[in-house]
Simulated assay, not measured.
Amino acid sequence: MNRPSPSHAALPEPSAKLIDGWHCLHIYYRVDQAALQGLSASDIAEGREALVHLLDPERPGAPARLQTSVVSGHKADLGLMIMDADPLLIDGVCQGVRASKLGSVLQPTYSFVSITEVSEYVPTVEQYGTKLRQTEGLSVEDPAYNAKLNAYAQRLPMMNKQRLFPDFPAWPVTCFYPMNKIRHPSANWYMEPFSSRSAMMSEHATSGIKFAGRVSQLITASTGFDDWEWGVTLWGRNPEYIKEIVYTMRFDTASAKYAEFGPFYISYLKSPVDALEHLQI
């Protein structure tokens, strides 16, 4: 009888679910007015009822995170952001939209598939201690060193949990865009040493921290999952903060020299009922 080798015995069971973290889908729909006008009033009412239930983040069996928004501009009308450990549960929402009476009305125009991750540039406690010694000149005997190190050690698990299993802020505006780090002969991110990349990302993070309380940011990884390498989701207390943070962070070296951006989708959060009403469905 064939027995698994010791190395194989330690491997997790095959699964579509992530070992640690969530799958993420951004999907955008456009209202097909001709299809809408071709439906009877009873079909529209039935479709509305089905979608209101399907997109309810509190319903039994809903994905871990489900957010609905109406999109500004011509690229789309309705936006969904869905997260869960099980990608098929996420896809079930899309299939439910398609199979509903309004499935012919809501036509997908763009989607982005990614997963949550803890960035390799997030310092460990040991790396943070090294940074305090090297950049701030603190010694291990300094009370300030120990205070900062202990505070970081307490924050780090919560920060990593938010990256892997994020809560969505109840703020009115959200923005999504994909991005790459470029591979140009004169600016190839992937040819830079880790220490250089880490320093640039530290500068980038420092710029973002200035918007704490005004903008919340989530970076999801899409290498191997979609055409871009990362997805950036922003939530803002006010639309102007979205513009300000994107503009400000573009001056950081990691962005100014090495970043390439895809399409931007700006949208405004609404409940499923309010979103369908706004779309006049």
Rank of each mutant, 00 (worst) to 15 (best):
V118M: 08
D84S: 07
H278N: 10
M81R: 14
M159L: 13
L218P: 04
E203I: 10
S271W: 05
P178V: 00
L164E: 02
P14K: 01
S111K: 11
G262L: 07
K75A: 12
K270R: 15
K17V: 08
R3V: 12
D32A: 09
T135S: 15
W228S: 03
R183N: 11
S216M: 04
L18R: 12
S69V: 05
G79Y: 00
V118K: 01
F194P: 00
V246R: 06
V232H: 05
W189G: 11
V273D: 15
Q33F: 08
L25G: 00
V93C: 10
R65S: 04
G21W: 02
V173K: 03
P263T: 06
P143F: 08
S195M: 12
T248A: 15
M201D: 01
S114M: 05
E203C: 04
I44G: 02
S139K: 13
S104D: 11
E46Y: 03
S207H: 15
V273E: 15
P193S: 09
D77P: 09
V52G: 03
Q162S: 12
P108M: 13
G208D: 06
A170V: 07
V71G: 05
V113P: 00
V122R: 14
Y121Q: 03
A85V: 11
V97D: 00
Q154F: 07
W228H: 01
A50K: 10
V118H: 04
I242Q: 05
M158R: 14
D167R: 10
T206S: 15
W235K: 05
D86V: 02
V273R: 14
P178Y: 00
K17D: 07
H8V: 13
L36P: 00
L11C: 09
S119C: 09
M159K: 11
T116L: 02
R59M: 06
Q37E: 15
E120K: 14
P60E: 11
L78K: 07
H278T: 15
T223F: 11
S100K: 04
E117R: 07
S255N: 03
Y268S: 10
W230Q: 04
A64P: 01
Y121N: 01
Q37A: 12
N150T: 14
L54F: 07
A76G: 08
S69G: 11
I182H: 08
E192I: 01
M1Y: 08
L218Q: 15
R214C: 04
L11W: 10
G103F: 12
E13W: 11
R214F: 09
Y258R: 02
G262E: 03
T248G: 06
T68A: 06
L102F: 03
Y258Q: 04
G21K: 03
S195Y: 09
Q107I: 13
A151C: 02
K210C: 08
E277P: 02
A170W: 05
L269W: 02
A187N: 12
L88A: 09
R250L: 06
V122K: 05
G47Y: 01
P172M: 06
Y241W: 15
V97F: 05
F168S: 07
F225N: 03
S255K: 05
K243I: 10
E203M: 09
I266C: 10
A205Y: 12
I82Q: 02
I209W: 09
